[in-house]
Design a binder for these strands. Structure first.
Lengths: 216, 216, 216, 216
DNA sequence: TATGAATGAGGCTTCATTCAT
DNA sequence: AATGAATGAAGCCTCATTCAT
């Protein structure tokens, strides 16, 4: 008896989470397709095939759904970065940057969307806690980066500047690369975005390496 | 008589344009201070000290006012770039990039704001014409860049990749540098943003220079 | 066999009624604690430790649960009044009014709550029947009061006005006394509410007595 | 010129206030006719013959409109009370109570409505300021009452109990009298409500007079 | 039998835009 | 020409009630 009901509860939970993921996926899809301002809770619910109210069983507010997308993406980036850190520690100095660029540039549209979402949600009071969580994740990640980069500096691989200069420069370049892809009238004049992104990644991998920098 | 009335008409026009500029300036100020979502047409009119309706004598829609800010900024960047091109042609190969980075990073908040505005206005149908104009400006600028960069490549200063790789990489880095400054939980962990921006500018100036790039 | 199953059915019924009472008690508790507008069916079910659906096995609608609280309270008041009637008939002319005031003012919060509930439920079509029942109870009670008061009038204890004047005046004073306790900015300026209620009860007991009234 | 535009502005203001009053009146009408829960901002706007948005030009929120009704009524009562105080000071000891009862009982439906509104708006955070204002009005009124009653006590007209006992008892009786009128199954069994209200007013005028109270 | 996820009508509110004065 | 009151579409969110498990 107990086993049966436990199994049932689990099954229910599984379905619940499945649907939650479905909502997130659909929201993401619509956000990417139609733009942030065009996506309403109604539209998401319709597309998922559920009622508006159901969305609110999973998320206390629209903002909470959106911030979830941001958090999920941040976690994805952080895990890729962690792998890069490990590979770097294992002896491949360029692995870290490559991992980072590859994970951010592999889906530029998503990357850009999360940036936009984060910007808009920054001061939403309902989700202050989740924003804290986001920042906490970032601090954890950057702490790891700082440590690894400090080692590379000690090894003479990277320029001896504050470690965060290196990863913030990488962050910046990756961020900007993403924007290039979507800036109408800029990157869209050409159709070899992939080659461009490889070029930029190359810069990312090289920049800050010992002997690369000159005075301004 | 005719001269008098012409003078009067001119005076009127001048005042009209003066007020238009004031509306733009106030809008910019409020956008920077309060955030895009908080700025209403009402708030702008109030701050300027005119009626809401008057704003619509100058701009057919709110979007048109906002896109004007984007266009003005783009023109400002383009003019700086033009000066950089001229300096480069006059013999200083690094002038171009320096001019570019300096103009974009000298007021990161404004730079970021225009990016955000552009993103939001992208598909606003009312201002399709202005967006075309924006893209046209960009094409003109990039044409100039392409020519100058091609020369630098021919001179062996820059890597021999498609010219737009170079300026898009610069664009990306500058863009990303701006974002770093404003990303909560990232750049705001440190308070030496200026030094960081100088570091990144250094990278910008160096990157793509002959002999800097390695294979990925 | 039959006996056994009868016993079982009875046991079931007992438990069912027990749970019903618990729902009512919890609802009452929450209504008093949080205010009418804050109490949802969900909150009640949660606090009882049952599912929302189960509440609807006991009550066809939320209104039906609420009106039940009103009816229970009315029955409680009616029974106290009945005791007062009996004591009065047994020779204590003031017993009736005292019983009434004491029963209403002993828990002013509850008294007020039921008033509020009744007001809100007045035209709820789903519970027209229960409202009829409430009114029927009142008519039965007032019939008893009318009879007793008529006797007191005949005895010369009370002023010779229509009997219902007397009990409606009492009802009014008690009702108002309750409201005084809860009116922000009125009764809450002072903290000797109990003494005040005793004072008012004194008035209630006296008013309408022969020789007390003057012309307006 | 200036005179003309001043006149125009005044005319505009007048119309604006006129409309505001119209909204209040219509809201009141609907509240009395349909019950608090049935009155939506939409319904009010429709009935006034204006758009929903226009209501929000006059009131920041629905609560603000409702609290306005409460405040207006309180001011009306306070002014009547003031007249009563003056008449009492001028030598008519009963004038105060009569004025009070007459003003509250002359439109019991309105009196009851404002009670209900006040109860519901008590903890609405948006109108905390207005509720403070309401309480402030009450304190001012009760201060005046206290002073006048103290004199009547000193004159030996009223029982020597804390002055607020007297006016709170009056408040209570009036409040309760109002409720009697609207309690289904209670006051509505009879149709001589006016006579009843006169009877209760008589009690109000007499109660607390020297020599009227007995021990409980 | 008990559950609680799902529903969706309906409420409040905002703000870009219009147009009579 | 300038105004700002009026508009109303559209968005977010709540919660009583239902019904499949």
């Amino acid at each position: 008896m107990t086993t049966v009901s436990t199994a049932r509860i689990r099954e229910k939970k599984r379905r619940f989470l499945e649907r939650e993921q479905r909502i997130i996926n659909v929201a993401l899809e619509l956000l990417l397709r139609d733009g942030i301002d065009q996506v309403t809770v109604s539209a998401i619910a319709d597309q998922v095939g559920i009622g508006k109210g159901t969305v609110y069983k999973h998320f206390q507010s629209k903002s909470e759904l959106l911030v979830r997308i941001v958090l999920d993406y941040e976690a994805y980036i952080a895990s890729n970065l962690q792998k890069g850190i490990e590979a770097t520690e294992a002896g491949d100095p360029g692995a870290l940057v490559k991992a980072y660029f590859n994970s951010r540039l592999s889906n530029p549209g998503l990357d850009r969307l999360t940036q936009q979402l984060e910007f808009r949600l920054e001061y939403e009071p309902q989700i202050a806690a989740q924003m804290q969580e986001l920042h906490q994740m970032r601090r954890a990640t950057t702490a790891g980066l700082n440590a690894t980069i400090a080692k590379l500096i000690a090894l003479g691989v990277l320029e001896d500047v504050p470690p965060h200069y290196h990863y913030l420069a990488s962050w910046a370049l990756a961020q900007g690369a993403v924007d290039v892809c979507f800036n109408k009238g800029l990157g869209d004049q050409y159709d070899d975005n992939d080659a461009l992104l490889r070029f930029i990644t190359g810069i990312g991998v090289t920049m800050g390496n010992k002997g690369q920098l000159r005075d301004i």
